[in-house]
Simulated assay, not measured.
Amino acid sequence: MNLYLSASIPQLETFLAVKKVIDEWDPLHLFPCAPLDEYEHEVHLICKRLEGCPPWRDPPALDELAGFIGYVCCECNHYDRSWAVYRAVADKVIHAVKNVSA
């Protein structure tokens, strides 16, 4: 699918950082059988949400991002997980994106 082929370098770095976190989490337990681009749509949506908060502004609040990630990655697929899991993943995403920006 490669949603970021025309992306700028910072967008691509953000995409890859978020993709790494989501792929490691594997919210629907599809790996290793699923293709490597399995969660690209969800990662794209998360990156679009993060773009609404450029680096000179505060990132989305942890709880807000956790709810968004939970909805996009799990609830849309009728595979709910715990709030603590969503918060942990959101925290990892925020740290990964901050490391890209640094």
Score class of each variant (00 low, 15 high):
residue 56 W to Y: 11
residue 91 D to H: 09
residue 63 D to Q: 06
residue 53 C to T: 13
residue 81 R to K: 12
residue 85 V to D: 14
residue 9 I to F: 11
residue 35 P to I: 05
residue 2 N to I: 13
residue 1 M to W: 13
residue 90 A to G: 02
residue 77 N to E: 11
residue 28 L to I: 08
residue 51 E to G: 02
residue 47 C to M: 04
residue 56 W to Q: 14
residue 54 P to N: 10
residue 88 A to Q: 09
residue 84 A to S: 14
residue 38 E to P: 05
residue 79 Y to V: 12
residue 101 S to Q: 15
residue 92 K to N: 06
residue 61 A to M: 03
residue 26 D to G: 11
residue 17 A to Q: 10
residue 59 P to V: 02
residue 90 A to W: 01
residue 22 I to A: 04
residue 19 K to D: 07
residue 82 S to V: 02
residue 77 N to Q: 10
residue 27 P to C: 13
residue 25 W to P: 03
residue 13 E to M: 13
residue 100 V to N: 12
residue 45 L to N: 11
residue 44 H to F: 09
residue 80 D to Q: 15
residue 64 E to H: 08
residue 1 M to D: 15
residue 84 A to W: 04
residue 48 K to G: 08
residue 75 E to G: 10
residue 81 R to H: 08
residue 97 V to S: 05
residue 27 P to L: 09
residue 87 R to Q: 15
residue 10 P to E: 10
residue 25 W to K: 03
residue 89 V to F: 01
residue 74 C to D: 06
residue 40 E to Y: 15
residue 70 G to M: 00
residue 102 A to S: 15
residue 64 E to I: 03
residue 91 D to K: 12
residue 69 I to M: 01
residue 20 K to Y: 02
residue 20 K to W: 02
residue 56 W to A: 13
residue 92 K to Q: 14
residue 82 S to L: 07
residue 51 E to D: 10
residue 95 H to M: 13
residue 38 E to W: 03
residue 77 N to P: 03
residue 36 L to M: 12
residue 90 A to C: 00
residue 33 C to H: 15
residue 22 I to C: 04
residue 71 Y to R: 10
residue 22 I to K: 06
residue 35 P to Q: 10
residue 24 E to L: 11
residue 3 L to Y: 15
residue 78 H to Q: 14
residue 8 S to Y: 11
residue 38 E to Y: 10
residue 27 P to Y: 04
residue 57 R to V: 01
residue 11 Q to F: 06
residue 64 E to D: 13
residue 88 A to W: 00
residue 96 A to Y: 01
residue 34 A to F: 06
residue 31 F to D: 08
residue 72 V to E: 12
residue 40 E to I: 02
residue 49 R to M: 08
residue 62 L to F: 00
residue 97 V to G: 09
residue 45 L to R: 14
residue 3 L to W: 13
residue 6 S to E: 14
residue 96 A to N: 03
residue 54 P to C: 07
residue 94 I to C: 05
residue 78 H to N: 14
residue 99 N to P: 05
residue 69 I to T: 05
residue 12 L to D: 04
residue 78 H to R: 12
residue 73 C to I: 05
residue 77 N to M: 09
residue 21 V to L: 01
residue 75 E to Q: 15
residue 52 G to V: 01
residue 1 M to C: 12
residue 78 H to Y: 09
residue 92 K to R: 11
residue 62 L to S: 05
residue 43 V to T: 08
residue 7 A to T: 04
residue 34 A to S: 04
residue 43 V to E: 04
residue 96 A to C: 00
residue 17 A to S: 08
residue 1 M to L: 10
residue 7 A to Q: 00
residue 68 F to S: 01
residue 20 K to L: 07
residue 19 K to S: 05
residue 15 F to Y: 10
residue 78 H to I: 08
residue 67 G to P: 02
residue 4 Y to M: 15
residue 18 V to R: 05
residue 54 P to V: 07
residue 52 G to R: 12
residue 16 L to I: 05
residue 2 N to F: 14
residue 31 F to N: 02
residue 55 P to D: 08
residue 95 H to I: 09
residue 63 D to E: 09
residue 16 L to Y: 06
residue 2 N to Q: 15
residue 64 E to A: 13
residue 96 A to V: 01
residue 62 L to A: 07
residue 19 K to I: 01
